[in-house]
Structure formats: C-alpha cells, structure tokens
Design a protein around this nucleic acid. Structure first.
Lengths: 328, 328
DNA sequence: GTGAAAGCGCTAACAA
DNA sequence: TTGTTAGCGCTTTCAC
C-alpha cells in the first residue's frame, strides 16, 4: 500500500475506486496510522497538556474545582480532536526543571490551572516556543493569556450580601495563602467592607487551607473567644464553609439565626448541606472549556498570546444567611 | 553538536570533559530533546492512557471515585516517569472506533476504568498490540488483566452488618445498571440475605443511577408506600446515601433510630453528613496506583496480561446504623 | 490523479 | 570512547 494512498485518504483528488480499495486494505490489515510519526512530521501532535497544582498528589482532582475545570477542558479538547495529558506540580512550589517535560513535544500547548502567585515555572515557559494559557488571575506577565474568575468582584458581592443583611462583624476564612484566588477574595472582602464605610478588623481575618478542617478549626476559634465574635462568616470555599457549619452545629450555634455563613464555589453538597448553603457559583466548567479555545487559537491559528477573559461569579441564595440579629 | 553526544548523555562511557562541554552547549541553546522523535525511534513514548466512562462528559472527575482513581494513577505514573493522558467514553456505550485513537502510538498502554459490563471497545483492543489493564471486575475475557474491588464481598459485609443489627427488611438502592459494580453489589446483597436464611423481596431492590437524586427518589418511594417499608437501606454509593438521608430528613424519619442507612465509598462528606454515614471504604487510590504498576509490567517488562488482583473494602462504622427497633 | 524522494529528530548497531 | 549509517512512519514537494 503506497504512502500516497494514505495521504490521499485526506485529500479529495483520488479515484473513487482506488480510494475504496485502499480503505478496504486498511481495515483488512487492521492498519492504524501512527500519531507520533505523524506528529514528528507535522510538528503537531494534537495534544494539550494540563498542569494542576496540588499539595497531595493523589487527591488533586477530588476537589470539585479541579474536577470541573478538568471536565470542561476534556470536553472541549475532545470535541476539537485534541487529547489531554495531565501533569501535577506538587506543593505549590513549582520547579522550572519540569519545563523540559512540558515542552518536549508531547504537548502542543499547555494550560496552567491556578498556579501559585509566584509562577516560576510558567516564567520559564517563555524561553520556549510552546503556547500556554493560565487559568487564574493576571498576576504574572501581562502578555500571557489568562482566563479566570473575577475573584475580587465575586468576594465583594458575597460580602455585600452579608452587609445588606445588616451584618457588621464579618469574618473572612481564607484558603491557601500561596494562591491568588484566596488573596484576591481577601481583597474583595476588604473592598466591600471599606465600600460600606466599615472598618477592617484584622482579628476577623483567618487564613488557612482550602478544606473543611480549616473551616472547622477557624470557626471554633472565632466563636469560642471572649469577645469580638462575628455575626457572619465569609468562607473562601464551600469546603471551608462545610467545616464551619459543622463546628457551629457542634457548638450549638444556629445557622443562620445566630450566625450567617456564606461559601464559595457552589460545589456538590452545597444545596443539601444543613442549612443549604448560600454561596458564590463559579462557572468552572465554562472556564475550562474556554481555556482550551484560547489555547487552540494560539496553537492552530497562531494568534499571539495576551488575551485575557475574566468571568463573573453568581450569587446563589439559599438558607445560610439571615438578617443580623444583634446590633452592630 | 553530534548526535552521539546526546546519546552518551545517557550512557556512562563518555569523557567527563566532552560530557561537560555537551551539557554546556545544551543549555546555551535551550535545547530540549523531542520526546516524540525519541518515541518514534524507540517505539515507546512513556505515556499511559486512562479511559473513563461517564454520562456527562464535563463532570466525570467530580465524582470522588474517578477523582481518586485518577489521583492514584497520576501519582504512580509520574513517579515512574510516565505521562498520563485522559480519555472519556460518553454514555457507557463504548464505541470500537475509538480504538484507533487509543492505539495510535500516543499511549504505550491503557487503563480502562470501570468499563460497562459489555466492553465492546476493550474487546476490540485485542486486535491490537497495545497492552491494557481493566479496573473493575473480571467479567470480560479471563486473559485480560484486572484490578479492582471485591464488590460482592464488600456488599455482603455491609448487608451482614445490617443483619447483625437485627434488620430483616433491607432495601437495596442500586447504581447504574450497566456497570458491573452495581450489579455485583446487588449479588452481594442477595448473598448476604440468603446466607442469613432470609428471603429476597424484589420490591426492596430499586435500581437507579450513582447520584443523590436516585437516593432521594428511591427513599421517598420506599418510605411512603403503604406496606413493606424497609428498616434499613443499603445504598450502592455514598452519593445515593446522601440523597436518601435527605429524603428521610424531609419525611421526618429519624436515622438511625427509625431507619438505618449504609453507604459505599466513604467519600468526602461521609464523615460529616447527618448523621455521619456508616459506609464501605474502597482503597481507590491504591487501586489506581496498582493499575499503573500492573500496566507497566506489561509495557516495560513484557509480562503477559492475565493477572488480576481484587482488593477488599473496609467497613467504616459511624452513626447511621442502629439496632432494628421493630420486629421482623 | 499517482508515485518517488527527502526529511522531521531521535535511537541503535556498527565501524573507526 | 567516539563518529557514521540506517531507519522509526509519517507529510510534503515535486516529477510523472
């Protein structure tokens, strides 16, 4: 079977008879073309890489955020005929030696998901010809392509919702300090407070990690201290909120009558928690989807990087926020 | 820079000086070897493929099962220097045309995660030289390599736990009927019942899907009917159990005092549900990890397929099961 | 329309 | 120890 036949398989200038014959031989032989030889020759494998940052390598995708992002990416990639390969950077301290792996031709382009605020690795990507897009905030170089959530605005919306319910002492339970998402939500929190002419009490801001343990511990800290207890708690993620909810239940503090709680993400379980959690919904799947589009634009059409898209979050009102019972 | 230098970069028979010089030139030029050219030549890319089955392409990894399996796979693969590429088969009706994609050289081997009971696609893999392992039950060909959970034994353990608490009318809330996991847990359920000399009441077996809605609806069905209500419910997954728990709460039925509930998976949230859920914990991460080991054995060492490993689940006792209050 | 020839960037087997 | 010579299986360019 001559090579040209295979080629013509794609082109339309081939005799219908010959074509037929080739096709027949092809599946008689169970022939399947080698993507990698094709890749060598075309300099494109039709494959995109996704880099996740995580603390615990084996649990990375359990978190709803990563899972949904990946879902969006996978769906978009598959529909565009790209395969998706996954990488993890452990511990938020990315290492520029991995760039070699990411740029060895295995991937035509990369998507970095929620990189740390100091993205060493991504910076090293610049010596490279490999296009990439960053899911997260435009905190790094302005000529990179970003897609993400407007965290400041989202946090502001959440806190303003609390303020609108009369709350004055609002606590902020942060996520991972190395992640800009947590940092920026903190900004939004403070902006909302300042915007309402309220002063910012540092003792109400408690950093932590993006998990339920953080929520539990911080809520206990907050509610068992002598004075200055909050009447509302803004949690940087639903997981944190779930932990807080549990702490409050254990402490016999009613939500939302005594304390209001608001989450972030609208992950599975937010609708069925007790009480159902008011939270900020991120368009995570769509962001993953768009990241692929943005990347392929660069990979296939050669559009230069530098575009960025910020998406808004949506307030989902359920039953964990109530009007403040006590005076400010 | 001569090709041989690069080669020697790997071998240890090279002059230290030359070696040094090559290394220097390498990073002066920002040279990074092409994995795909290397792949063409070696016939191995050091890359494994993972095939997930899902109904909703964009949500696949949100479920804790898939997320954890993937986590285990990723960790093992990375530590063995393999990259991991992800594929999805949508709707549990796998299609043998995808075999071409899986076997185009992009992956040195494949892991199929929880394939449908009739694995058409995997069968088509046999015409191929590409090694694979199946995570799930040895329901297909016996010369495939399997790794998975002993679902029958696990379900039996769960139901026996219920029986030991005096329950006689135990309902079974199944997951997806196309998946062997659900089917086999059903078998285990019946085996436990028979083993205890109890008769099997078909009206207590309700199939469904692996999600909370199923749990909710089925629990409502079960508990609102005139007669033959169960005193205990064995759910095929924690998600189903969460839905059931919510239904019971809505119906004002106390768990575990009036009805006992047992789940399966021990996923996030099982410890913090109300009441905390008694459930069967799967060693999911380990299974993912082992799948990679089994696969690489075939890919690298050329060990023939046909090995299978079944792992036991572990009963995690929390507060959703109590001694039966009513007589059988 | 169809075939032949060169080359993508590496590895491998051999010769120097 | 080092350099040379063939491919790996495809795409592409260019004669036929």
């Amino acid at each position: 079977m001559t090579v040209s036949h295979v080629l013509n398989n794609r082109s339309e200038k081939v005799g219908a008879v010959t074509r037929e014959r080739v096709m027949q031989v092809i599946d008689e032989l169970h022939y399947s073309p080698s993507a990698i030889a094709r890749g060598l020759s075309r300099r494109r494998l039709d494959s995109i890489g996704v880099v996740f940052y995580t603390q615990t390598p084996s649990r990375l995708v359990s978190a709803s955020y990563h899972g949904d992002i990946l879902g969006g990416i996978l769906e978009a990639a598959t529909s565009r005929g790209q395969s998706t390969t996954l990488f993890t950077e452990v511990g938020f301290t990315d290492n520029h030696t991995r760039v070699n792996v990411y740029c060895d031709g295995r991937c035509d382009g990369l998507i970095f998901v929620a990189p740390p605020a100091e993205p060493v690795l991504i910076r090293a990507m610049e010596h490279t010809q490999v296009p990439f897009v960053v899911i997260g905030e435009p905190l790094g170089e302005s000529h990179w392509s970003y897609i993400g959530l407007d965290n400041i605005a989202a946090a502001k919306t959440a806190v303003e919702h609390l303020i609108a319910h009369g709350h004055q002492r609002i606590a902020f339970l942060g996520g991972n300090d190395k992640l800009s998402s947590s940092l920026l939500r903190g900004c939004g929190y403070r902006e909302a407070l300042s915007g309402a002419g309220m002063k910012i009490d540092p003792s109400l801001t408690l950093p932590g990690l993006y998990n339920a343990e953080t929520g539990y511990q911080r809520a206990v800290t907050l509610m068992t201290r002598e004075s200055n207890r909050p009447t509302a708690i803004f949690c940087c993620s639903d997981d944190i909120a779930f932990g807080a909810l549990k702490a409050l239940r254990d402490l016999n503090i009613n939500v939302p009558d005594e304390v209001s709680v608001i989450g972030f993400d609208d992950r599975d379980g937010a609708a069925t928690s007790i009480p159902p959690l008011t939270t900020m919904r991120q368009p995570v799947i769509q962001i993953g989807y768009q990241a692929v589009e943005l990347l392929l634009e660069q990979v296939i059409e050669g559009v230069p990087a530098g575009r960025s898209e910020m998406w808004p979050a949506e307030l989902v009102v359920r039953d964990s926020v109530a009007t403040c019972a006590v005076d400010g």
